[in-house]
Design a protein around this nucleic acid. Structure first.
Length: 377
DNA sequence: GTATGCTTTCGGC
DNA sequence: TTACGGCCGAAAGCATAC
């Protein structure tokens, strides 16, 4: 049943979000099934001291003990004191391989496929379901079974008329859940949920809302638009209103290669010593440069990121007159930027990072580029 | 007023 | 309330151009 008006379908889109459950930790469980009934905590160790670093992902057993993503490792250890828990360092390359295998399966279920990060993807299923949410439910179940059978991994899936609803639906039942929200159920589905479930409502905005007496998405939907704009500014105010009603027109769009490449690392100790920082910067530049060459691109922008003693973040960046892929150029500019940053900031530096972006592809026919030069690229 | 470019910060995973 | 990684894209803020 398809209604057409000037070539435009009036009926709803069918959008699915697939979210691999506690991904890194689940992959580690798959690799070593004896971990399955224990708390598993996958960590990023900074190398500064024995336990410095943060928790990347924890399985649900660990979460029962209060372990969460982003938590300092030592605190996770304190919460799991006297418990037979597993702490593991990230094995990013391996997770990437597993992710690629899963994404290849998911892609087969989508008209349009958009991977978001390593463990999430949006699938536009409108065409293959002819707009039917019943058909989407069946496809989603099939997808979950296939990921389980072929990759031995569980995921949580949400289906809705747009990305916003699909995302919140996927969050509704986890892990290993499936939630379908038909268009006519969107408002009643969202209304009782806490506003924090909306993207863009974090601690800061959440606090402001609390003071306005807004606790649920339903409260938000009923709130006067003008008052929202006054409190949160025009852009956010209007976004919040439409989000509360489950309105979102953002298309599912295939993503290309990342638009930036960066490396950041923690210094052995906080410092303002240009020499020590430059040494680390040289290493980071080298890593970034390898990735640039692998992708066969040049960059037109170089950025520097510093995390200071108080954990605040500062960045500086510079646009090149013409694109470059030269390691020396990268290092020189990164050092120039760190010099500038140290001039403008008093605190010591805890972590330092290098980023390149605004890529241009190299021409295959070198003779032609030599002739024309690099203008406009 | 609108579009575009550049830099910096914010926040999700 | 404080501990603390390494990424990424989006948004914000500002300047300039049309």
């Amino acid at each position: 049943m398809v209604f057409v008006c000037g070539g435009t379908h009036l009926e709803s889109r069918v959008i699915t979000l697939v979210d691999l459950d506690y991904f890194y930790a689940q992959v580690e469980e798959r690799r070593n099934p004896s971990f399955r009934d224990k708390p598993v905590v996958v960590c990023v160790y900074s190398g500064r001291t024995e336990d410095s670093g943060a928790v990347s992902t924890a399985n649900y057993v660990a979460r029962e003990f209060g372990v969460k993503s982003g938590m300092p490792i030592f605190l996770a250890k304190r919460k799991l004191k006297d418990v037979d828990a597993v702490f593991l360092p990230m094995d990013h390359a391996f997770y990437e391989e597993v992710s690629d295998d899963v994404m290849a399966i998911l892609r087969g279920f989508a008209d349009i496929f958009e991977q978001v990060g390593i463990d999430e993807a949006y699938l536009d299923m409108t065409r293959r379901t002819s707009g039917s949410f019943e058909a989407a439910y069946e496809l989603a179940q099939q997808l979950r079974e296939e990921v389980k059978a072929r990759e031995n991994l569980t995921c949580s899936v949400g289906v809705g008329p747009n990305k916003l609803v699909a995302k919140i639906a996927a969050d509704f039942q986890k892990p290993d859940g499936l939630t379908v929200v038909k268009p006519e159920r969107v408002e009643s589905f969202l209304a009782p949920l806490p506003v924090k479930r909306l993207m863009g409502v974090g601690t800061k905005i959440g606090k402001m809302m609390e003071s306005l007496g807004i606790e649920t998405v339903g409260d938000l939907a009923r709130y006067d638009v003008q008052a929202l704009i006054e409190a949160f500014g025009r852009n956010l105010g209007i976004y919040l209103r439409s989000a509360s009603l489950g309105i979102d027109e953002a298309p599912v769009q295939e993503r290309g290669e990342p638009e930036s490449i960066s490396r950041i690392s923690t210094l052995k100790e906080d410092s303002r010593d240009l020499e020590a920082i430059s040494e680390r910067i040289a290493e980071l530049c080298k890593d970034v440069h390898v990735k640039v060459l692998e992708r066969n691109v040049s960059f037109r922008s170089v950025g520097l990121i510093a995390v200071l003693t108080d954990m605040s973040i500062r960045s500086r960046s510079k646009t090149l007159e013409s694109p470059s892929r030269d390691l020396e150029v990268l290092k020189d500019i990164a050092n120039e930027l760190v010099g500038r940053l140290l001039d403008e900031v008093e605190l010591e530096v805890r972590r330092i990072g290098v980023k390149v972006s605004r890529f241009t592809q190299q021409e295959k026919q070198k003779a032609l580029t030599d002739f024309i030069g690099n203008r406009g690229r």
